[in-house]
Lab assay of single mutants.
Amino acid sequence: PKDEAKKKVKEAIKRGDEETAKRIAKKYNLDWDDAKREADEER
C-alpha cells in the first residue's frame, strides 16, 4: 500500500539514506518531493 511505502520513504530520508528513499518512491510511483517535504517537516 502507498501509505506504507511513503512511511518507508520518509524513514529512509530521516536516516539520511536518500538512495533507498528514491528507489522506494520510484517503485511505488510516489511523489519524491512530496515525501521529502513531509519528512523534513517531521524532523
Results as ranks from 00 to 15, higher is better:
4 E>I: 12
24 I>S: 01
18 E>H: 12
25 A>V: 03
31 D>W: 02
14 K>Y: 12
24 I>Y: 04
34 D>G: 06
11 E>L: 09
29 N>F: 06
8 K>E: 09
32 W>M: 04
14 K>T: 07
8 K>T: 06
30 L>W: 04
16 G>Q: 02
34 D>K: 09
19 E>Y: 10
7 K>I: 11
17 D>L: 05
39 A>E: 04
35 A>Y: 09
3 D>W: 13
29 N>Q: 09
17 D>M: 04
1 P>R: 14
34 D>Y: 05
19 E>D: 10
39 A>T: 06
31 D>G: 03
2 K>M: 14
29 N>G: 14
26 K>I: 10
29 N>H: 10
4 E>F: 14
40 D>I: 10
36 K>Q: 08
5 A>I: 10
39 A>I: 10
40 D>W: 13
16 G>W: 02
17 D>W: 07
13 I>L: 14
25 A>S: 04
28 Y>G: 04
4 E>M: 12
27 K>H: 08
27 K>F: 14
38 E>Y: 05
27 K>M: 15
33 D>Y: 09
28 Y>Q: 01
28 Y>N: 07
33 D>N: 10
23 R>Q: 12
26 K>V: 08
41 E>K: 09
5 A>Y: 11
41 E>F: 11
37 R>Q: 08
9 V>S: 01
1 P>Q: 14
7 K>P: 02
15 R>D: 05
35 A>T: 11
41 E>T: 10
17 D>N: 04
37 R>K: 11
28 Y>T: 01
32 W>R: 00
6 K>S: 06
9 V>P: 00
30 L>A: 01
11 E>H: 05
21 A>N: 00
26 K>G: 04
17 D>H: 05
39 A>W: 09
6 K>L: 15
37 R>L: 07
2 K>L: 15
7 K>D: 07
28 Y>F: 10
21 A>R: 00
13 I>R: 02
3 D>G: 09
43 R>E: 13
37 R>E: 06
17 D>S: 02
1 P>H: 13
15 R>Y: 05
2 K>R: 14
4 E>T: 09
40 D>F: 13
5 A>C: 07
23 R>K: 13
12 A>K: 02
19 E>W: 11
19 E>K: 10
5 A>M: 11
38 E>I: 05
20 T>M: 13
32 W>Y: 15
36 K>E: 04
42 E>I: 06
9 V>H: 01
15 R>T: 04
12 A>E: 02
3 D>N: 11
41 E>A: 13
10 K>M: 15
21 A>G: 04
39 A>N: 04
27 K>S: 07
22 K>G: 01
38 E>K: 03
21 A>S: 05
7 K>F: 11
25 A>D: 00
26 K>W: 08
30 L>I: 15
24 I>V: 04
15 R>I: 06
40 D>H: 09
15 R>G: 04
14 K>S: 09
2 K>E: 12
29 N>M: 07
42 E>F: 06
31 D>L: 04
27 K>N: 05
22 K>N: 02
23 R>A: 14
36 K>C: 09
